[in-house]
Design a protein around this nucleic acid. Structure first.
Length: 264
DNA sequence: ATGACTCAGGAACTGAGA
């Protein structure tokens, strides 16, 4: 079973790229972020025609997350618990059925948090604390469980081309990295780092200042695995070639293969 | 370098992104 995450930066503008990548990579389940549209504007029919069930948690103009699944979707939950005043669409969770049992997947678009001296950073840290609470609850279920998405966290200096340039950024501040480490300490495994300790594995290159041709990238899109999922991990990868396509997203897809029978 | 680029909304620009 192949599970992927991709911040597409507008699903409507990126529909052709997304369909092309689905045909190429053939994922069984995909978490999409920054769909930047409301539920009724989501190109549902195009993805259904490609063989996917669709769950959407949209928002006008900004944010918005969705999950595509070839497996039947048994449950959908939207919105990260813990703050009733939070109206931003950044969290969607599904349970899908496979031949060997259920798999639980959360798709997240964690807040950017810049500038750090504003309430935006407090919102980010609060969101991470709420996510930690939810993950702890889900881990108690002892299921194959994946938290996939745009974390807006550079975990270590090995995950950024120019660490000094990001020193004061909300994505790389010590407090941000510590909160990410707290998630791992609950018992989650960073799938990509479970298969490679190589430097230069990036998932985002800014549109500005020639970041892509200079390979001035960062790794901020992650798939974190419960012990039951980590035990099934066969492979993980980053589809960086999509950054070179026409009209690219500034993020690229990240995927894992779990030793669970695929479907379709 | 004070910037660079790209998106949605809405119809000229701003806010947001990271």
């Amino acid at each position: 079973m192949r599970i992927a995450t991709w911040n597409v930066n507008s699903v409507r503008l990126r529909l052709d790229n997304t369909l092309a990548w689905l045909a190429e990579r053939q994922p069984d389940l995909v978490c999409l972020q920054e769909i930047k549209c409301q539920d009724d504007q989501f190109p549902r029919a195009a993805f259904e025609a490609a063989g996917y069930n669709v769950a959407v948690h949209g928002q006008k103009g900004f944010n918005g997350v969705a999950i595509l699944s070839r497996h039947p979707i048994d449950e959908v939950t939207t919105g990260l618990p813990g703050d009733d005043s939070d109206v931003q669409s950044r969290f969607i969770e599904v349970v899908v059925s496979t031949a060997t049992g259920v798999v639980r997947v959360c798709g997240i678009y964690l807040p950017n948090g810049n500038p750090p001296d504003t309430e935006k950073y407090g919102y980010k840290l609060g969101w991470m604390k709420r996510l930690k609470t939810l993950v702890a609850q889900r881990l108690a279920l002892e299921e194959p469980f994946v938290v996939a998405g745009d974390y807006n966290v550079i975990p270590t200096p090995a995950d950024v081309h120019d660490p000094a340039a990001w020193a004061g950024d909300a994505l790389f501040l010590p407090q941000t990295r510590a909160a990410f480490q707290e998630l791992l300490n609950l018992g989650l495994t960073d799938a990509l780092r479970a298969v490679s300790d190589a430097p230069g594995l990036y998932t985002f290159w800014d549109y500005q200042a020639g970041a892509w041709p200079r390979n001035n990238g960062i790794r901020i899109d992650h798939l974190l695995l419960s012990p039951q999922a980590a035990g099934l991990l066969k492979a993980a990868g980053i589809d960086r070639h999509t950054r070179g396509w026409e009209k690219p997203s500034d993020h690229v897809p990240v995927w894992i293969d779990l030793d669970i029978a695929p479907r379709g």
